[in-house]
């Protein structure tokens, strides 16, 4: 089943074409992640799916209708969007910010109904921000702020959520926190989530469906295990890597390496390539502990 899809989409800015005749159907109630190198068009595609960008040709279909032919408020009751660098009004509190998400449910007359209030409090609770609700958004830490933005999208109460790199500029803990939150929204409320992620390993862990893009075209799509292979990573990112099983999530784990990397006791493909110019012995052996060791991988490899 799909509610959101793209038909023969040609997208571009000014005179520059970004992608030609791309078609894509996003599975309902699943987490889909768009991956690809910088400039591959993944953010552009997400913008088009969120109707921020008018396609040159083709359509984005939402529930069987062209998204650009539907009233924007109606679309906003079905689909929410968190852009890459959202800007908050000066001095606004967390609760006020979250309540902005209720906009598509409000009218000239009713601008703060009991349902609005209930949904906002619920969104604050789900994102664990109730205690911070009265605080100014400017005073929040990066992780809290990102949660506040997500809370705003949650308060919008839409079955579909689109997010453009929701983990950028967050440290590892907060990246996990945001992705766990999105996963719980997907699992508990059945929300369809479509996001762009930079980190391939996080994408593999949290995605049900991965869409890999290169130069504005879809290279592969499907479950992480099927999509993320050594050849594909090389194809998409121009990067050598090894793929092993994530010991925790049992999803593919990509260990990239370059000509400068050296693996102590690693396999032939890894060791001896290039000079060990950047690393001290200590950090090499640490890297080895995490990556190269045969004990951890226990022989299970998707590729490589």
């Amino acid at each position: 089943m799909t509610r959101l899809s793209a038909n023969d989409l040609t997208l571009g800015y000014q005179r520059q074409v970004i992608m030609r005749e791309l078609s894509l159907a996003l599975p309902e109630s699943r987490i889909s992640v768009l991956i690809g190198a910088n400039g591959c068009g993944k953010s552009t595609l997400l913008k088009a799916l969120a109707r921020l960008l008018t396609p040159w040709q083709g359509q984005v279909m939402l529930d069987g209708d062209d998204i650009h032919h539907q009233p924007t408020r109606r679309v906003a009751r079905t689909l929410s969007l968190l852009p890459q660098h959202p800007v908050a009004p000066e001095g606004i509190t967390v609760r006020q910010l979250v309540s902005l998400g209720r906009h598509p449910h409000q009218s000239w007359l009713a601008q703060w109904s009991e349902e609005d209030e209930r949904q906002v409090e619920l969104a604050l609770m789900r994102t664990d921000l109730t205690a911070q609700a009265h605080r100014s958004v400017d005073t929040l830490s990066g992780g809290q702020r990102q949660r506040a933005w997500i809370a705003m999208a949650v308060a919008q109460d839409t079955p579909l959520m689109l997010l453009d790199e929701p983990t950028s500029f967050l440290d590892l803990t907060h990246q996990m926190e945001v992705l766990e939150l999105l996963k719980s929204l997907n699992r508990e409320s059945g929300k369809t989530i479509v996001m762009v992620l930079h980190d391939l390993n996080l994408a593999c862990r949290y995605a049900d469906h991965i869409v890999a893009l290169r130069d504005g075209a879809i290279v592969a799509q499907g479950a992480p295990q099927a999509v993320v292979t050594r050849e594909r990573v090389k194809d998409i990112f121009q990067l050598e890597c090894r793929i092993i099983e994530d010991p925790f999530f049992h999803t593919p784990l990509c260990i990239p390496f370059g000509p400068g990397s050296r693996s102590v006791g690693g396999e032939s493909g890894l060791s001896g390539q290039g000079a060990p110019s950047m690393q001290t012995t200590e950090s090499s052996s640490q890297q080895n502990m995490h990556t190269g060791s045969k004990h951890v991988t226990a022989g299970w490899e998707i590729d490589g």
Partner: peptide, 21 residues
């Protein structure tokens, strides 16, 4: 009548479109 929009004007355009403005 426009108070709600006056507050919304402070958010960036992409976000505003996202919530149906």
């Amino acid at each position: 009548a426009l108070m709600r929009h006056a507050l919304l004007a402070g958010v960036d355009d992409a976000l505003a479109v996202g919530i149906g403005v």
